[in-house]
Design a protein around this nucleic acid. Structure first.
Length: 277
DNA sequence: ATATTCCCCTGGAAGC
DNA sequence: TGCTTCCAGGGGAATA
């Protein structure tokens, strides 16, 4: 369940350990994750390269090399990184390994293989690679506010929850934080996006920003698989107000068994039937 | 043009 | 006990 806070937690953990490292070799134990993994191509892109930056865009990690190339990484559902001594035996689900200067090995494990590892070129320093050009606005950017969300939602009949999870609209919000943000804003997840008014859009934009920032501060949410590169679990799951709490009492309005679970667009969605309209 | 459905993949839990 | 089914859900292609 890595969403923006989990990916940012991973980025912050990896950054100090990867910056300045030189990649000596790459190996892979599978030829496809979510996308094909071509180890020869990876070697051509990575070997001899120094890592200059580690960015996050949406739920992607972006590794920037010293020559205008780099990697786009996605954790999928069960992806995890660790950095270990080169001699450390591989675990069964470690799919890709980069040998780094200093005798270290940077490992990508992914049980369900929904993750991805893509080499890329950057058209300009600091910009997104073309593969990520379709992505919408970063919710923690200053330009993301109620007015922006209001404009995005005009004329759209799809449920507001589906819209805020649409990565071409606003990025980083997945199934867990969508339910949490809508709860905080008092908006029913199935409300048509175009029927969300200015005041509600403003509350929702604020709620999205706040829940993501609080989750980052807590090191993310661990419900099943998520671990940071040190193997630690996140702590935000104890702060979830509605996600996974069907039949629970509402922590805001107090309605007994007020929390409902419904399926929207194939995803479990949680809301309080007493205080979300 | 917009929005939904399907598929990828594995393991743990629940059901029979 | 053991087998089957369901569920988790991000992203992107296919489809309506």
């Amino acid at each position: 369940m890595p969403e923006l806070p989990e990916v940012e937690t991973v980025r912050r953990s990896l950054e100090p350990r990867l910056l300045g490292a030189v990649i000596r070799d790459v190996s892979a134990s599978v030829d496809n994750l979510r996308l094909p993994v071509n180890v020869d191509t990876l070697r051509r892109f990575c070997c001899g390269r120094r890592i200059c930056a580690l960015r996050r865009r949406a739920k992607f990690l972006v590794v920037v090399f010293d020559n205008g190339a780099g990697l786009i990484l996605h954790l999928g559902m069960t992806g995890a990184f660790r950095i270990v001594p080169e001699s450390t035996p591989y675990t069964v689900h470690e799919r890709v390994a980069w040998t780094l200067s200093g005798g270290r090995s940077w490992r990508f494990a992914d049980v369900r293989r929904f993750g991805s590892v893509r080499p890329t070129h950057f058209p300009d320093a600091g910009g997104d690679p073309p593969e990520l050009a379709h992505l919408g606005i970063e919710p923690l950017a200053p330009a993301f506010d109620g007015a922006h969300l209001y404009r995005l939602s005009r004329g759209r009949r799809r449920p507001i929850k589906n819209l805020i999870m649409d990565q071409t609209m606003v990025v980083g919000v997945g199934n867990i934080y969508a339910s949490e943000a809508l709860f905080r804003a008092g908006i029913h997840p199935a409300r048509p996006a175009g029927r969300v008014g200015r005041a509600s859009a403003s509350r929702l934009a604020t709620a999205i920003r706040e829940v993501l920032e609080e989750a980052i501060a807590a090191g993310g949410t661990t419900l099943r698989d998520f671990r940071d590169p040190d193997g630690s679990e996140g702590m935000f799951q104890v702060h979830l107000a509605v996600y996974g709490r069907q039949a629970g009492d509402c922590p805001r309005c107090g309605m007994a068994a007020g929390i409902r679970r419904v399926v929207m667009a194939g995803r479990s969605s949680f809301y309080c039937r007493g205080c979300q309209r």
